[in-house]
Design a protein around this nucleic acid. Structure first.
Length: 870
RNA sequence: GGGCGGUUAGCUCAGCUGGUAGAGCAUCGGUUUUACACGCCGGGUGUCAGAGGUUCAAACCCUCUACCGCCCA
C-alpha cells in the first residue's frame, strides 16, 4: 500500500463498478423492509452547487446504512425541467449567440433548442452526482418533462378539473414584466425599497376649488383610478361619501366610496382606488361594483383609455410624466421619502406588476385540510419538529395557487378552445372536434403549468402510480424526504396535498430539513458575491469522502452550515489517517488469523478495543436513528483517531506475534470500515477490497450493531487505568524536558492492589508507550533515587533526576501545583458545605466526593514529595 | 405587525434529559519512535452577548434587553 492516501485514484473508478454490479438497484421482489427516498430533482439549468452536495450526501449516508442493515432500499434519481429558469437561460444564450429572440425562432424550434440544452445539462449534472458517490438507482431515473410525466401530469390536471379543483378565472395576479409571465404568490419576494409618497389633490366635481388629498407611491396608476375610498367612520370624510371627484389629467368623474378596509392612518386617510393594478383596490372594487380599467400592459407599459401622451410609456417614465403634469397644474400637495415593501420577481428581481388576467388556478380549500391533519396525526414527521409550525402556519392561510405560466418550456395546459362556440375542452386526449358544436376549429391553450405543479406529483408519479406499478405498491409512501427549509412551501406542502389526494397516503413518513450552506463567514453563497464554493473543486482537492464527512459532521438538522475549507482539509487528513491505520493492519496480517476467537485467549487491549468498538456501534446507531448524523460522524472520528490509532494500534505492536491479536486487528478494521462506509464510501471500499471477506462489496456486509457478548468491563477498566498511568508518565517527562526518545528507568507506586497487579501483568505495554527502560512497582519511594514526580488516581510516578538542577525545578513545580490544588479543594469543600450536599441526587454527590477525594489524595502525595525532596 | 433562529477558545462550530465547557483549523514547545510530518508527544487559550429570576447547581429552564440573520403578512 502507498504511504499516503490518494483520493483521486480511489474515487476514479469505484462508482462504475458499484453501478455495474447493480448494487443500487433493488431486486423486483422485496428482500427486506422497504425503505425509499426520492431524490429532490436538481434543475437542468446548469451545474450543482454546494447546497446540493448537502441535500444529496445526507440521504445517501442514510440510504447506505439502511442497505447494510438489510432493508429493501430504493433511492430514486431524477432531474427537473425548471420552467422559467431554464427557458430564460436558453433565451439568454440564444440572444448572445445569434441575436435572436425566442419569437424569432418560433415555439417548436425554440423547444427543440431547449431540449438540446436539457440533454447537455443533464449529462453534466448526472456526472457531478456520481462524483459524490451517491447510491442512486439510475435504472429508474426520471425527468419531470418526459413523455411519461407529460401523460401523468395531464391525467392529474384533467382529474382535478373534473373535480372542480382546477378552474379558470380572472383575478389579480402577480406578473413579472421581464419574465413576461404571471407568478404565484410564493415566487414573489417582498423587499423594502426607498420610494416616494406623493400626495395628490383630487378636485371635487361639485367645486373644483376644493379637493381631497390622496397619497400614493405609484402616481402613474392614477390614470386607472375608478374611485376614492375613505373609511366610513372617518369624521374628516364621512360627509364626502357619495360625492364625486373629477380625476385630474383624464377628466373622468369618479365616486368617493366608504370602505372599512381603508387604513385611516395612511397618508391623508383617503386612498385612490386602482382595481386593475392593486390587490387591495381590487377587493374594494369588487365590493362596490366598480369597473376595472387596465392602464398597464404585460410588459409594464401604459395602455388603455388614457391621454395619448402617456400611451406606450414605461411605467416608471409615466410616473415622472404624471407627477410633472400634476405639479404644473398645482395638484401636488407634497412629496416625501417613504420606505415600503414591494414585490420582486424571485427569479430576475424585477418589480412585479399586480395585474388582472385570466389564469388557471388550483383550489386548495379541500386539499389543504387533509395535509394539515396528516402532519398533526404524525403520519408525516418533521425533523426538527419546529418546522411543522411553519408548515401549519402557511397551510392554514393558504390561497388558491395560480398554476398557469406564459412560457413555452413546460407541461402545456391540456385545455382547448372552440373558435366557433367558445367552448372550453379539457381532456386527456387531444380533441378533434368540439363536443358542443362539432366545430373543428380548436386551438390549445398557449400556457404551460408552473414547474412546481409537476414537482408536487413527484413522489407518486416517479414510482408509477399512473400504471399501478409494483414500485408504487412497494415504495409508497416513501420513507424520507431530505430538503432545505426554503422549499417547504414550494414543494413539501404541495407534495403533501397532491400525495394525499392521488396517492391516498402521505408522500413520505419523515421530512428532514437541513439548513443552507454559507461561506465561512456565515454569508449566503452566491455567484455574484463571488463567495460560492464549487463542490467539484473541493472534491478534486480533498476528495468526495472528505467533503461528505465535513458536511455530515456539521449538519445539525435545521441549522445552517458555515463551510470552512479548513475543516474539509482536516477531514482529508482523517482519510489519510484511516488509510495508514489500515496499512499498518494489512502489513501485519499473515493469513493465519483465526476467523473466530475465544475471548479468554485475547489480550486485555484486544478486549478493551472490542468493548469500545461495541459501545461505539451502539451510539452510532442511536445517532443515525435520531438523525443526529453529525454526532455519529463525530463519535467515529474520535474513536478511530483517539482510541483506535493512538492506543489500540500502539498496544498491538507488543502482540503482533499473536494470531488472536492480528485477528482482532483485522476485525476491528472491518468494523470501522463498515461504520464509516455511509460517510466515506470510496475510501472504505478501497481498503475493504484488501481485506475482503465473504462479500464482494462493503455495502453488502452488515452494519455493526451492539452485541452483548462483546462487553468486557474488566478489561476496559484495566486498560483505562493503564492509559492514565502512561499519559501521566508522558506528561511528567515532557514537563521536565526529558528527551522524548531517551529510555529511562521508572518507579511506580500504587494504592490499589487490583490495579497494581493488572499493571504488573501489562508492563510490556507500559514500557513501550512511556519509553521506560525498566519499570519497577514498589511499595515505597524511600530509599530510591530522588526524581520527578507524577501523580494520577491511585498512582505515583518517579523518574530519577540526573542532576540537582532537576531537583530544584521539580520542587518549584510541585509547590505551584500544590497551591492550585489548595484552591480547588477549598472551592469544592465550600460547595459541599452548602445546600448541595442536602439536595443534589446521591449519585451526583458521590461522584463529586470521589473527585474531591482524588484531589485531596493528590495534594497529600505532592506534599509528601515536597518534604522528601527538600 | 406576527413568528423562528443565532450570539460558546483567534476563526468555523458541537455541547442530547440542568451537575465546575469541547472539536476542527490556527497557535506555542518538543519530536524524523520500524502505519501515518495529512504524523507523534505535550501545552496555552473562554466573566458560554448583557441583566434579572428559578435551582443545592444554569451555556442549558423562565423573563427582559442588545446585536446579527431568516420566514410570513
Amino acid at each position: 500500500m502507498e504511504k499516503s492516501y490518494d483520493h483521486l485514484r480511489t474515487e476514479a473508478d469505484w462508482y462504475r463498478r458499484w453501478e455495474e454490479a447493480g448494487l443500487f438497484t433493488p431486486a423486483p421482489e422485496p428482500t427486506g423492509i422497504p425503505f425509499s427516498i426520492i431524490l429532490p430533482p436538481p434543475n437542468v439549468t446548469g451545474s450543482l452547487h454546494i447546497g446540493h452536495a448537502l441535500t444529496l450526501s445526507l440521504p445517501d449516508i442514510i440510504v447506505r446504512r439502511k442497505k447494510m442493515q438489510g432493508f429493501h432500499v430504493l433511492w430514486l434519481p431524477g432531474v427537473d425541467h425548471a420552467g422559467i429558469a431554464t427557458q430564460m437561460m436558453v433565451e439568454k444564450n440564444l440572444k448572445q449567440e445569434t441575436g435572436q429572440s425566442k419569437e424569432d425562432l418560433g415555439r417548436e424550434k425554440f423547444l427543440q433548442l431547449t431540449w438540446e440544452w436539457k440533454e447537455r445539462s443533464q449529462q453534466q449534472i448526472v456526472g457531478q452526482i456520481k462524483k459524490l458517490g451517491l447510491a442512486l438507482d439510475w435504472t429508474r431515473m426520471k425527468f419531470t418533462l418526459s413523455d411519461e410525466m407529460q401523460r401523468v401530469v395531464r391525467k392529474v390536471f384533467v382529474a382535478l378539473y373534473r373535480e372542480g379543483k382546477v378552474y379558470q378565472g380572472t383575478y389579480m395576479v402577480n406578473r413579472c414584466p421581464n419574465c413576461k409571465t404571471v407568478l404565484s404568490d410564493l415566487e414573489v419576494e417582498h423587499k423594502e425599497v426607498q420610494g416616494r409618497l406623493t400626495h395628490i389633490r383630487y378636485p371635487l366635481r361639485s367645486d373644483p376649488r376644493r379637493w381631497v388629498v390622496v397619497a400614493t407611491t405609484r402616481p402613474e396608476t392614477m390614470l386607472g383610478d375608478v374611485a376614492v375610498a375613505v373609511h366610513p367612520k372617518d369624521p374628516r370624510y364621512k360627509k364626502r361619501i357619495g360625492q364625486e371627484i373629477l380625476l385630474p389629467l383624464t377628466g373622468r368623474a369618479i365616486p368617493i366610496v366608504g370602505d372599512e378596509d381603508v387604513d385611516r392612518e395612511f397618508g391623508s386617510g383617503a386612498v385612490k382606488v386602482t382595481p386593475a393594478h392593486d390587490p387591495v383596490d381590487f377587493r374594494i372594487a369588487l365590493k362596490h361594483g366598480l369597473e376595472k380599467i387596465v392602464v398597464i400592459d404585460e410588459r409594464a407599459r401604459m395602455t388603455g383609455p388614457i391621454p395619448e401622451r402617456y400611451l406606450g410609456l414605461d411605467r416608471f417614465a409615466c410616473r415622472r410624466a404624471v407627477v410633472e403634469d400634476l405639479r404644473a397644474q398645482g395638484l401636488i400637495e407634497k412629496e416625501e421619502d417613504y420606505v415600503h415593501n414591494v414585490g420582486h420577481c424571485q427569479r430576475c428581481e424585477t418589480m412585479v406588476e399586480p395585474n388582472i388576467s385570466k389564469q388557471w388556478f388550483l383550489r386548495t380549500a379541500e386539499l389543504a385540510p387533509p395535509a394539515i391533519e396528516a402532519v398533526r396525526a404524525g403520519e408525516t414527521v418533521f425533523i426538527p419538529d419546529k418546522w411543522k409550525k411553519v408548515y401549519f402556519n402557511w397551510m392554514e392561510n393558504i390561497q388558491d395557487w395560480c398554476i398557469s405560466r406564459q412560457l413555452w418550456w413546460g407541461h402545456r395546459i391540456p385545455a382547448f378552445y372552440c373558435a366557433d362556440c367558445h367552448e372550453v375542452i379539457v381532456s386527456e386526449q387531444d380533441p378533434s372536434a368540439c363536443p358542443k358544436c362539432g366545430g373543428a376549429r380548436l386551438h390549445q391553450d398557449e400556457d404551460v403549468l408552473d414547474t412546481w405543479f409537476s414537482s408536487a406529483l413527484w413522489p407518486f408519479t416517479t414510482l408509477g402510480w399512473q400504471d399501478d406499478r409494483a414500485d408504487f405498491r412497494t415504495f409508497y409512501p416513501t420513507s424520507l424526504m431530505v430538503t432545505a427549509f426554503d422549499i417547504i412551501f414550494f414543494w413539501v406542502a404541495r407534495m403533501m396535498m397532491m400525495g394525499l389526494h392521488f396517492g391516498k397516503a402521505v408522500p413520505f413518513r419523515e421530512v428532514l430539513i437541513n439548513g443552507l450552506i454559507r461561506d465561512e463567514k456565515g454569508q449566503k453563497m452566491s455567484k455574484t458575491k463571488g463567495n460560492a464554493v464549487d463542490p467539484l473543486d473541493i472534491i478534486r482537492e480533498y476528495g468526495a469522502d472528505a467533503l461528505r464527512f465535513t458536511l455530515a459532521i456539521q449538519a445539525v438538522p435545521g441549522m445552517d452550515i458555515a463551510l470552512a475549507v479548513g475543516r474539509v482539509k482536516g477531514y482529508k487528513a482523517f482519510t489519510n489517517k484511516i488509510w495508514n491505520a489500515a496499512r499498518y493492519v494489512i502489513m501485519n496480517l499473515k493469513g493465519d488469523e483465526p476467523a473466530a476467537f475465544a475471548p479468554a485467549r485475547l489480550s486485555a487491549p484486544d478486549r478493551w478495543v472490542l468493548h469500545r468498538l461495541n459501545a461505539l456501534a451502539e451510539k452510532v446507531n442511536a445517532g443515525f436513528d435520531e438523525y443526529r448524523l453529525y454526532e455519529a460522524a463525530d463519535l467515529i472520528y474520535h474513536f478511530v483517531w483517539d482510541e483506535y490509532c493512538d492506543w489500540y494500534l500502539e498496544f498491538s505492536k507488543s502482540d503482533l506475534d499473536s494470531p488472536d491479536t492480528r485477528a482482532v486487528l483485522k476485525l476491528t478494521l472491518l468494523r470501522i470500515l463498515q461504520l464509516l462506509h455511509p460517510f466515506m464510501p470510496y475510501l472504505t471500499e478501497e481498503i475493504y477490497q484488501r481485506i475482503r471477506l465473504e462479500r464482494a462489496f462493503l455495502i453488502q456486509t452488515e452494519f455493526p450493531a451492539f452485541r452483548s457478548e462483546l462487553v468486557f468491563p474488566e478489561a476496559h477498566a484495566e486498560v483505562e487505568a493503564l492509559r492514565r498511568v502512561v499519559a501521566e508518565t508522558r506528561r511528567t517527562r515532557t514537563e521536565n524536558r526529558i528527551e522524548p526518545n531517551k529510555r529511562i528507568p521508572v518507579y511506580l507506586r500504587c494504592d490499589a492492589e487490583a490495579e497494581r497487579r493488572s499493571l504488573q501483568a501489562h508492563l510490556k505495554y507500559y514500557d513501550f508507550l512511556s519509553r521506560s527502560q525498566r519499570t519497577e512497582i514498589v511499595d515505597d519511594f524511600s530509599g530510591l533515587p530522588k526524581g520527578f514526580r507524577g501523580v494520577c488516581p491511585n498512582w505515583e510516578i518517579l523518574l530519577p533526576f540526573t542532576d540537582d538542577q532537576d531537583r530544584q525545578r521539580e520542587l518549584q513545580r510541585l509547590r505551584q501545583e500544590h497551591d492550585k490544588l489548595d484552591k480547588l479543594i477549598a472551592q469544592m469543600e465550600a460547595k459541599l458545605g452548602g445546600g448541595f450536599a442536602e439536595k443534589a441526587p446521591a449519585e451526583v454527590i458521590l461522584n463529586f466526593k470521589k473527585n474531591l477525594q482524588e484531589a485531596i489524595d493528590k495534594r497529600a502525595k505532592i506534599a509528601r514529595t515536597v518534604v522528601d525532596l527538600s
